[in-house]
Design a protein around this nucleic acid. Structure first.
Lengths: 190, 190
DNA sequence: TAGAAATCTAAACATTTGTTATCGTTTTGC
DNA sequence: GCAAAACGATAACAAATGTTTAGATTTCTA
C-alpha cells in the first residue's frame, strides 16, 4: 500500500489521518498473467491502481473482433471509468498481461474520498485531466498519423512496451492487423 | 450571461455571491460564421462556453490535410484543454461554423474558480469527466465501428448536425474523405 | 524437457479507402 | 440579383489495409 500512499501524497495535499482512513478501505490484490480482471456487461464498481504489472483494456466489436483500446501501466488508475461514472454495464474487458499487483478502490471509497477528503475533488479532477490529455492525444494520433507513424511513436507513451507485450497486441492497439504491422516493419509502405 | 449562470447552478452548488463574482470576470463575445476563434502554435489561455452556435476543432497533419476532431455545441465548454492545462502551444484551430455567441473564461478566472469556489474543483472534475466520457466513446467508435456505422450514429451525439454542417466536414469528422462518404450513403459498402 | 500453443513473417488475393477529375446544383458574398 | 465559390455525386484508377493460408521459430505448460 506504500506505493499508493506515495502517489496520493504526490498528487494532492493529504493529511496522515486522511491517508490512513482512505487507504485502510482499499484492498491489495494480485492477478496472474492473462487473468481477466473485469468483464463486459456488468456495472463496474471498482477502480484499480496499478502498483506493478500491465493491464490491457479491450472491446469486442459486432463481428467478434477484439480491439485493444489501452495499456495501463504502473502508478496509473484504470477502470471502465465512463461506465463507472454512469453506473452502466461495462463495454470493456480488463486483462492482466503480466503478474499484476493492484490496489482496489470500491465505489464507496471513491465517493467517500470525493466527499470527505479536503482535496478529494481535486484528485478526481487531476486524474480525469490526466486521462483527458491522454485520450486527446489518442484521438489526435488516430486522425493525423498513419499507422506506421503511430507505431514509431508508441514508445513515447509506453516505454519498453516491445519487451512487455506481444506484437499482435500492439497491432491491435494501433488499429491494424498483425499481418499489416509485420509489413509496416519491413518498410514497404509508410 | 444568464445562460452560463444557469448552467453553473445546474452543475454545482454555488451561492449568488460566488456566481456574481465569478461571472463578472467572464467576457461575452460573438463570432461570425467561419471566423477563426483560436489558432495553433500559441498557448491557449481561454476557455469558451457556447451560448449559441457551433464550433469545430481541427488539426492539420504533416501533409497539410485538415482533420475535424470535434464539433462543440450549445451549453458546452470548448478549448484546447490539453494544452491549456499543460500551458503548451496549441495543436488545434477553433472555428465558428455559424454565428456563435460565447462566454470567454480567461485562465486567471478558471484558476481562481478552482481555488476559491466552494465546489470549483468539483465543477472541474465534472467537466473533465464529461469530456472523458465523450472521448472514450470517440475512441471506442474509431476502433470498433466502420465509417458507415459511425455515420449512421452521428446524430446520437450531434442532433441536427446534417442541417448545420456541410457533409464534407462530417466526412472529416468521421475520418474519411468526402468522396468516400458520398459512396457510403449510396449504400454500396458497409 | 517434450509436446502444444503462441507468435511472427511471408505471399497471394480481396476489399476498403483515397485521389483526381468532371459536372451539375446550391449557396454565398458583394 | 448575380457572379463566384462551395458543395455533392460520380467514375476510373491507385494505394492502403484486410483475409487467408502456410511455415518456421519461440514460448509456455504440464
Amino acid at each position: 500500500m506504500e506505493q499508493f500512499r506515495a502517489y496520493l501524497q504526490q498528487m494532492i495535499n493529504i493529511s496522515k489521518d486522511e491517508l490512513d482512513v482512505f487507504t485502510s478501505s482499499c484492498i491489495p490484490k494480485t492477478f496472474k498473467r492473462n487473468d481477466i480482471i473485469s468483464r463486459p456487461d456488468t456495472v463496474p464498481n471498482e477502480i484499480f491502481f496499478i502498483n506493478k504489472g500491465i493491464i490491457r483494456v479491450t472491446i469486442t466489436d459486432n463481428g467478434g473482433v477484439e480491439h485493444t483500446i489501452h495499456f495501463a501501466l504502473e502508478n496509473q488508475f484504470i477502470a471502465d471509468y465512463s461506465c463507472f461514472i454512469m453506473k452502466q454495464p461495462s463495454l470493456y474487458a480488463l486483462q492482466a498481461l503480466e503478474q499484476t499487483e493492484v490496489v482496489v478502490l470500491p465505489r464507496s471509497v471513491v465517493e467517500w474520498g470525493y466527499k470527505n477528503l479536503v482535496e478529494g475533488d481535486k484528485l478526481g479532477r487531476l486524474v480525469a485531466e490526466f486521462y483527458f490529455i491522454y485520450q486527446d492525444m489518442r484521438i489526435r494520433n488516430l486522425y493525423a498519423y498513419t499507422p506506421k507513424e503511430r507505431y514509431d511513436k508508441i514508445t513515447d507513451v509506453f516505454p519498453n512496451i516491445h519487451n512487455r507485450v506481444p506484437q499482435h497486441l500492439i497491432a491491435s492497439y494501433l488499429g491494424i492487423t498483425p499481418v499489416h504491422l509485420s509489413r509496416l516493419k519491413k518498410g514497404e509502405s509508410k
